[in-house]
Simulated scan of single mutants.
Amino acid sequence: MIMEALDALKQTEGANKSSISKYMESKYGEMPPGHSDLLSHHLTRMKESGELFFIKNNYIKPGPDAPVKRGRGRPPKPKEPLPLGAEVPAPRPRGRPKKDPNAPPAPKKPKLPAGPPSISKTGRPRGRPRKVNPQPLQDGFEA
């Protein structure tokens, strides 16, 4: 109905939503109460799919030499055809693979040797070093 209205209105700059709606009412008579919402939905869907262009608040049918509208994002890489007789591999499932319930349990990690709990593998304690207290004065000078 929308394409028919655009063809019948024959406007070079296109037709807006109200003129399309008026044409439909004149041709088909009384419209249902949700007509304007339904018309808006279909016009938006046709605009996003590339069936219509929306320029200066008017809807226009694309010409025969108009470029094809691409979807969002990067286009997929072209796939090479499989040789004859080859089976199509099943797609891998998404996410992390499930654990094998029959697999032997994994060995436990060895614990670090007993010592101060704040010393790591490098031998240095974690965090900021403690402040060093100044030495008491000897003969009037600080050591």
Rank of each mutant, 00 (worst) to 15 (best):
S40E: 10
S40C: 04
P81K: 15
G95C: 00
R74Y: 09
A90D: 10
A86K: 14
L84N: 11
L39D: 01
N102Q: 15
P93D: 09
A86E: 13
P62R: 12
G85L: 08
K99G: 06
D65V: 09
N102A: 15
F54D: 12
R45H: 05
G34F: 00
G63R: 15
G95Q: 02
K69D: 05
D100F: 03
P32Y: 07
V68D: 02
P97Y: 00
K69S: 09
G50I: 11
H35W: 12
G71L: 14
G95P: 09
V88P: 01
K56M: 05
A86P: 02
K79R: 14
R94I: 03
G95I: 03
P91G: 01
R92P: 09
A66I: 12
K56N: 13
D37W: 00
R94H: 04
L43Y: 01
P67A: 13
H42P: 00
F54S: 14
E87C: 04
G73H: 12
P101Q: 07
G34Y: 01
T44W: 07
E87A: 11
K77Q: 10
K77G: 03
P76L: 05
E48R: 15
K98F: 03
G95V: 03
M46Q: 02
D65L: 13
R96S: 04
N57A: 07
H42I: 01
D65I: 08
N57L: 07
V68G: 02
G73A: 06
G85Q: 08
F54K: 15
V68P: 00
R70H: 13
L38Y: 06
R94G: 03
S49I: 00
L52N: 11
Y59F: 15
P89D: 08
K99T: 07
P32D: 13
L43P: 03
L82T: 02
R45T: 10
P83W: 04
V68E: 10
E48H: 10
P33D: 00
D100C: 11
L39Q: 05
R45F: 00
P89V: 06
H42C: 00
S40L: 02
F53I: 07
K99S: 09
G73T: 07
E80Q: 14
N102F: 12
D65R: 15
R72L: 14
P83R: 14
D65K: 15
E48A: 11
K61N: 01
P91N: 06
P101A: 05
A90V: 12
K56I: 04
D100T: 11
K47L: 01
P97M: 02
V88W: 07
V68H: 03
K98V: 05
P89M: 09
P78I: 10
L82F: 06
K69A: 10
R92M: 12
D65C: 06
R92A: 09
E51R: 14
K47Y: 05
K99D: 10
D37C: 00
R45G: 05
F54M: 10
D100H: 05
N57C: 03
P81R: 15
